[in-house]
Amino acid sequence: MEALTAAWAQLHGFVFEKLVEPLVFALGLSTYMEQAFDATEFVLVGAIEIALLWLVLSRLEKWKPVEVWADRRAVRPDMIYTFLQRLGVAPLVFFVILAPAVDGLDGWLRMHDIVPGKLEDWFPGLHENPFASFAVYVVILDFVAYWLHRAQHRFEWWWALHSLHHSQRVMTFWTDDRNHLLDDLVVDACFAAVALAIGVPPGQFALVVVATRVIESVSHVNARVGFGKLGEWLVVSPRYHRAHHAIGIGHEGAYRGCNFATLFPIWDHIFGTANTRGEFPATGIRDQLHGRDYGEGFWRQQALGFSRLAAALRPRKPTAAPVTTESLPR
């Protein structure tokens, strides 16, 4: 373990000192050198993570596929999203946009004698136990993720963006990062606000994201894999999450979907949104069967997301007939 840590320190330091530090210095941004150092690690972790996921999950998809497609071109944009998210956009959002914004808000609040709390105020023992502290952060942020996910399906304007994620009918482990960029930004901003409220520094928040997104990639894998009855109460499995993406199941009903949990299915069980039928249905959104286009390429998908958002935000004339979930645009 020591050798591994030392090797990682060498790699991180080498990449930073040879590539990133000279650039940051030349751009006159030396004040943000520490953030650049953290972002470098974030990108390196992302690169290794992608390589490992590809090595393991692509084999799993070949071994026990749910669906076999002759044409896999639809997977390519998802790969672009993954590379953007894990190597570029996410570090930018965290370290350039969100962290300064949260710091600005934190600074303003504190200047006005409003001191945001932190978990350690209620549980002082967490000061000396970073692992317990980290675990608590993961649970709280996953609980928040559950409700944000419910909101993504509940509000029309948000669904207009989030539906892109669900429009993939060729779902693979790459699909996890298939999100409209504005959807990502809104979700991350909400998380950042919560992180401020409970005292998670942005750097540590990034660590929570890195640690948990492996499970999220696994949950999208195109493989007949379940974790058993007990396992699927504990952690979201590919089978459990597939119901959430299923045509006619995952985006319907009173809650406009089921199995919203990101890591821990317990939230679905508590709030009545769990679907444990244990099937492997086809994925996509019902209106795609009637010809709705969500775009094939990255730019088209982003543009269509904005058009759907504009349509959702446009004021509507009152209708005579009551609105039902079936009549709502998906």
């Binding site: 840590t5 320190a9 060498q10 991180h12 330091g13 930073f16 000192e17 530090e21 150092f37």
Partner: peptide
């Protein structure tokens, strides 16, 4: 001396 970038 603390060598910031190499954990040393």
């Amino acid at each position: 001396v603390t060598s910031r970038w190499i954990r040393q």
